[in-house]
């Protein structure tokens, strides 16, 4: 075990009396990619919204880089970058304007924001489209911009909420390579996805969540070992075994 950059302790959150997050605790080490899997409505996005200070937990707390969510939300915000599940972009602005705007909100000055924006656009293979309006971009390009915005600033912890939904294999591969590159540079990443293969390839550890709780947490190999030979069992097998086969809304 390395140094825990994110430590979550007993977080609860209810909406209209219904428990969305029901006592979640976990840690993520610095430079680790932590996968959070779960069916629809399991509470994954609510956890991310709480940890990024958009929502306040009913009870419990977490620390990011030693700063408490409750006591030091501003410091926590400075350390985290969020790539939301939905495309959070201004369609009528250019890619560059989107990146610069969010970069400046992360505390960069104009020059720094532009330099970082161009660097991230290059990373995503979108330098040529820097001045193009987002509304003219394909789904894959929008996804890449959505991720590039999360990288703006000086974040140390990234929350990536299903960043590869609905995109082609090329864009997905580009995003994977970017995420691995970030990990290699010491970025801590919390990654949620419905794609088991993705989680298997990318994540150092995985938690499976259902009904607002963690039902399992281990390395991909460790999880598979729980129900059989890790070379024969897939993550999907363990996922379905733990969360059931009934359909979710």
């Amino acid at each position: 075990m390395g140094e825990a950059f994110l430590a979550v302790k007993d977080i609860y959150k209810s909406f209209n009396g219904q428990k969305a997050v029901n006592g979640v605790s976990f840690t993520i080490d610095k430079g680790e990619i932590f996968g959070l899997l779960g069916p629809n409505g399991a509470g994954k996005t609510t956890v991310i919204r709480i940890l990024s200070t958009v929502l306040a937990a009913d009870t419990g707390d977490a620390t990011v880089g030693g700063y408490s969510l409750r006591k030091n939300p501003a410091e926590v915000r400075d350390l985290v970058g969020v790539c939301p599940q939905d495309l959070a972009l201004y369609e009528d602005l250019s890619a560059l304007d989107n990146l610069i705007f969010f970069g400046q909100l992360e505390g960069l000055n104009g020059r720094e924001a532009k330099a970082q924006a161009m660097s991230h656009l290059a990373l995503m293979g979108l330098t040529e489209r820097a001045k193009g309006k987002i509304s003219k971009f394909s789904g894959g390009m929008k996804r890449r911009i959505n991720l590039a915005i999360a990288l703006m600033g000086n974040s140390k912890l990234l929350f990536l909420d299903e960043p590869t939904v609905g995109i082609d294999p090329q864009s997905r591969n580009n995003i994977f390579e970017t995420i691995r590159g970030l990990r290699d540079k010491g970025m801590t990443i919390l990654y949620t996805t419905h794609y088991m293969e993705e989680a298997n390839r990318l994540c150092d550890r995985i938690a499976i969540m259902d009904g607002g709780k963690f039902v399992a947490m281990d390395t991909p190999q460790g999880l598979k070992r729980q129900i059989g030979d890790p070379d024969k069992v897939t993550l999907e097998d363990i996922f379905l075994k733990l969360t059931g086969r009934s359909l979710r809304d």
Binding site: V54, A74, V80, V82, E91, L105
Partner: peptide, 14 residues
């Protein structure tokens, strides 16, 4: 609705 508000709220803007 398009979640940019959420993104802004997770930045340094309160």
């Amino acid at each position: 609705q398009n979640h940019t508000l959420e993104r802004i709220l997770s930045s340094s803007a309160n």
